[in-house]
């Protein structure tokens, strides 16, 4: 899916857990998420703490979109 969006000319960042599969599926901007059942959250934490993490992930995703890349790049989230 990510490749078709990129092919349509829209920069896209892929937030997903399974980075290697995302690599094989061809995403250029990748942000590793938390876990498959809850990529942008962690039920072990409180709602507020979860939101802090979610903000960090989405902020990293936006930064990825604002960064020039020439090949597949993983943008690590700084927790």
């Amino acid at each position: 899916m990510v490749k078709e969006i990129e092919r349509a000319g829209i920069p896209v960042v892929h937030i997903c857990t399974v980075t290697p599969i995302s690599m094989t599926v061809g995403a250029n901007r990748i942000v590793p998420a938390i876990a498959i059942p809850h990529p942008l959250g962690n039920p072990a934490l409180s709602m507020e703490e979860e939101k802090v993490i979610r903000r960090k992930i989405v902020e990293t995703a936006l930064e990825a979109l604002e960064t020039e890349v020439d090949k597949q790049t993983i943008f690590e989230v700084k927790y």
Partner: peptide, 14 residues
């Protein structure tokens, strides 16, 4: 803990 995934293991089990 969940913030330190071993991606090879994730891919292998998936």
């Amino acid at each position: 803990g969940p913030l330190h995934l071993d991606f090879d293991s994730v891919e292998m089990i998936e």
